[in-house]
Computed example of a mutant assay.
Amino acid sequence: MTILVTGGAGFIGSHATVELLENGYKVVVVDNLSNSQKASIDRIKEMTGKDFAFHQVDLLDSQALDDIFSKYDFSAVMHFAGYKAVGQSVEMPLSYYHNNISGTLTLCEMMLKHNVQKLVFSSSATVYGLPERVPIEESFSLSATNPYGRTKLMIEEILRDLALSNPSIRIAILRYFNPIGAHPSGKLGEDPRGIPNNLIPYITQVAIGKQPELKIFGGDYETNDGTGVRDYIHVMDLVKGHIKALEYLEKHEGVETFNLGTGTGYSVLEIVNSFNDVTGKQIPYQITDRRPGDIGVCYANPEKAKKLLGWQAEKSLKEMCRDSWNWQVQNPDGFTQ
């Protein structure tokens, strides 16, 4: 089976590509490298000892995408490509709507044209907006508090409509909570450009001296210590969920949605303290104003994925912090060194 991986040079896409290769799949990676590095592709080949095709192509380039679909016989698509920063989406909403939604529409058009019927879509817990309660179940009402979340929500609706119009289409929508960690080898990890938008890369860059201090956005939430609570999941656990979703689509028709989280919420300060314990570092921090579009508490009920996919997160918070730090120490300047 050959799987098309969009955004396969990025943080989650690269780890998923490794997992696919190690589970015997063939892959073709498409990535425009707008927020990733070609070096990650080279690392994947080195780590797995397996070669695969990489195309630097934007999903908005329908002709280039058509050429790729014509060249390979894809069994399924794993769709990771898209802009992903909540704060940036508030500042640049039109870019997010254009890139994330139009790119997905082009991808789906090519799938239909070339009779590729299975899709695993990278969605987000942001589609729950301000949840009515926690832990969050897949059946909860959907909304979003920022343009990034709304692009994911709109794409989910598009995919449901697509499946209704074509009974042969099979789609797994995976709603991620907060992926952190890195490959245990230290060869793959999250490599943000500029000041990180996500917590753990921010912490590791402070720890290694690239940033002066951690800025914690909001200390007045209704939580135990006032900082936001999230469900942090190791990226290696997360991508194992994608393999399970792919296997599920072999046997099930239609669209199904799954939360991928641990079911446990940790506050920002709990993460900082865990990181301090694992590394022996002391992370300086400053609590600043909340970011637009952020919410206070968000963690998953992952029981549906456990029941239907046979998947559950296994790695501890300590392992998440350890692997994130291992990646940063081995790659102080990310993939650019």
Results as ranks from 00 to 15, higher is better:
D237T: 07
E247D: 11
S267V: 08
T223W: 01
G13T: 08
M111Y: 06
L162S: 04
M154K: 07
D225A: 05
Q63K: 08
G129R: 01
A9N: 04
G218W: 05
D294I: 12
G261T: 15
F80C: 09
L142S: 10
S324N: 00
S89H: 07
G265C: 06
N326Q: 04
P184R: 13
I216M: 02
I158A: 13
V28R: 02
V297A: 13
F74A: 03
I195V: 14
V57T: 12
L188D: 02
L309V: 10
G10T: 07
V235F: 07
N197W: 15
K215A: 08
S168Y: 08
M320E: 08
H114L: 14
P135S: 14
I171T: 15
N115A: 14
L174I: 08
T223G: 02
V268P: 01
M154R: 08
A125H: 09
E109Q: 15
I283N: 04
H79S: 11
R322Y: 05
A53D: 13
G24K: 06
V90E: 04
H252P: 12
G254Y: 12
K240N: 01
T48L: 14
M78A: 11
H183W: 03
T126E: 11
K244L: 09
Y299M: 11
Q117P: 01
K240V: 03
I169E: 01
S316K: 11
V120Y: 01
L174T: 09
F74D: 03
A245H: 00
S168G: 13
F275I: 05
Y232M: 03
S123V: 03
H183Q: 13
V116S: 07
I44D: 01
G241F: 06
S89R: 00
T151Y: 03
I171Y: 11
G129F: 07
H79E: 00
N99P: 09
E253F: 05
N99H: 09
Y232I: 08
P93E: 15
G181R: 03
P135G: 14
R290E: 05
M236F: 06
E270I: 09
T264D: 01
G8R: 05
A64Q: 07
V28E: 04
D323R: 00
P135W: 13
T336P: 00
Q330F: 08
Q88G: 04
G280H: 06
D220N: 10
G149C: 12
V28G: 09
E22V: 02
A245S: 14
S122T: 13
V278P: 05
V206N: 00
L4C: 10
G24R: 06
S95K: 12
N326I: 07
L153Q: 09
E46G: 12
G265D: 03
L94Q: 14
H114G: 15
G189L: 06
S34H: 13
E256K: 03
H79A: 12
M78C: 06
N32G: 11
L94K: 10
A245Y: 00
P179W: 00
V27N: 06
N178M: 03
T264G: 03
G189Y: 03
D66T: 15
T104P: 11
D294G: 11
N224E: 13
L214V: 02
G263N: 05
V90N: 03
V297R: 15
V255P: 08
V134W: 04
L153M: 08
K210P: 01
